[in-house]
Design a protein around this nucleic acid. Sequence first.
DNA 1: GATGAATGAGAGTTCATTCAT
DNA 2: AATGAATGAACTCTCATTCAT
Lengths: 193, 193, 193, 193
Amino acid sequence: MAKRTGEKYFAILEAAVKTFARYGYHRTRVSDIAREAGVADGTVYIYFEKKEDILISLFQEMMTQFVEGLRQQLAECRNCNEKLAAVVSYHLNTLGNRPEQAKVTQIELRQIDQTINEGISQPLLNYFKVIEEVIAEGQKEGLYRHNLNIRTARKVIFGAIDEVVTCWAMSKKAYDLGSLAGPVYDLLVRGLQ
Amino acid sequence: MAKRTGEKYFAILEAAVKTFARYGYHRTRVSDIAREAGVADGTVYIYFEKKEDILISLFQEMMTQFVEGLRQQLAECRNCNEKLAAVVSYHLNTLGNRPEQAKVTQIELRQIDQTINEGISQPLLNYFKVIEEVIAEGQKEGLYRHNLNIRTARKVIFGAIDEVVTCWAMSKKAYDLGSLAGPVYDLLVRGLQ
Amino acid sequence: MAKRTGEKYFAILEAAVKTFARYGYHRTRVSDIAREAGVADGTVYIYFEKKEDILISLFQEMMTQFVEGLRQQLAECRNCNEKLAAVVSYHLNTLGNRPEQAKVTQIELRQIDQTINEGISQPLLNYFKVIEEVIAEGQKEGLYRHNLNIRTARKVIFGAIDEVVTCWAMSKKAYDLGSLAGPVYDLLVRGLQ
Amino acid sequence: MAKRTGEKYFAILEAAVKTFARYGYHRTRVSDIAREAGVADGTVYIYFEKKEDILISLFQEMMTQFVEGLRQQLAECRNCNEKLAAVVSYHLNTLGNRPEQAKVTQIELRQIDQTINEGISQPLLNYFKVIEEVIAEGQKEGLYRHNLNIRTARKVIFGAIDEVVTCWAMSKKAYDLGSLAGPVYDLLVRGLQ
DNA sequence: GATGAATGAGAGTTCATTCAT
DNA sequence: AATGAATGAACTCTCATTCAT
């Protein structure tokens, strides 16, 4: 079961971002999403196993696209510093331009039992891998310290950017998220050197 | 209503940490907490307005104690670097020694509608203030850059530590969280200089 | 929401009369009605907003039918006296033949907060209007006094009949309610003349 | 148990009229009455068996006083017509001057399972008896028809007055209830003759 | 594939009543 | 007699999920 593809699959996903961002995951009824997507309640269950699945699929689709786009950006960078800058900038700009996605990623996604959720951690690991690759590269290039624990550094980097996004997503969003890329990069790159 | 003090208040709070950490917020029934605390279901509602209230009160009590303890540590530091080290170390050690609290803080607490929750953000702001004070002090002492945006720096610092804790809380906790204090401090302090 | 029509709507209504009459409104659980109607608990809430709604809808359906039937009877009467007799007789006979409805109308219906209930007073007003029309007609025909306050007379008439029904509904119903129509009519008509 | 007398007994009763009239029987908590009476929750249960008991006792006290007062009035009447007029007038004036009692008598009292309630019907029967005595006397005096069924006539009389009070109690009480005594008496007395 | 009416498990919360002090 | 903290039974309503059409 659960087709996970097709025109209506994406219609439902799109409807879900909107309603989750507006009402929050728990206060959104499956029927709300169905109505927004213009399909019947039952139809949702042709494309998704259960409600949680919608949120997870949403994240997976977003994350896949995100990592893909990020990798394209990185391909054009000449060294690890440029790559780190690209990571920060791409992360902040991508979510800064998609407030609804940001809301879902930063807030709603955390409403699910994290303990079980392979579905969330797996796609996230791909992103983590990218960051860790950049750090390792920096060490090879001699730009970053060798006594750096790559995993810890990755946590610091991701955590820092993530918190910056969360603060913005929970705020009135009166400022441009992307404009924080420079300062954040500065803070992080020095730590690695 | 809602006494918010007394022997049973704390018994319920203690029972709540345990059950939330074990089953997660949403899968914990109020009656589970009551049983664990050795009181009747109704008694819970003498001390708390509603289920959500328990989680929030839990956080507030923890946070108040946390900030208080942190301030004591900082009082003994001679400069901002020592203070920053103290923040990182205190944060990681405190939660590292209390896995149940860590689980609740990092995971369960995010299960509530963040949009509404003054109850969560307010106590957190006190912690944020401490961090920002340390940074400002560092600038005054000439140890930290002046072109630093204090708020952004705070987000980076908090986000970094928070992510380190979250990864640990979601892991099998096979390593000592406190032992990451040094590396994390190193990464952060260089960013500020 | 609340479909308020369809096969199951009436099945639930029918089940409600029975259970309300048997156990009383407050002691009837929604699940009792559902079981009696042969539907699931949740189904009740597809057709009714809330429990109270069932009782009110019940009354509205009954009242609508009642007034309709009464109007048909009155159409065949040649003067206001015949009409008054018809009102008394129709009222007593209708409820006399439907003990369960009588129980609900006279007893259970009064278990709801009367202050709020438009839903109850509105349909009743239609009946009141019929009575008042009969009185006014009687005055025009010269059969009833002109110094009669129509509203007061209506209250007296309705109150009298209503009390007769209530006494019967609360009794063992050993006597035929309809047989009181004559005496009651006699008492009332003289008052009007 | 249940002292049913003493200073606090009446304080609770008085508090109950107020709160019942204000919030309705079902929405009044025992603790509301206790607070209004200035006693502890538990104290209520020294004087009353259960919540229902308060409402019933209230009615009994009111009814006893009512019938007593009515009997005094009747003692001064010279014939059954005067007595009937006294009944109507006394009933309407008494409740007309005590809106809170009226609310309780006409509305809240009916919120209890009438089927069981000896406690309500018993004191009411005393009033019924008074009315029936008046009618019987009228027949003896030759003023009222002999083919009158006394019980039915009593129901008509009581029902009529009761409805007049109920309408007033549920209304904004913009008119004086006692002023309806004349018209109501007129309507009723002619029926008896 | 699509529908949407029907299902029924599930739990938070209230509050009358009790009883140790 | 008086207190009021504690009890725990009771029940409505929601909503994710199913399945006959």
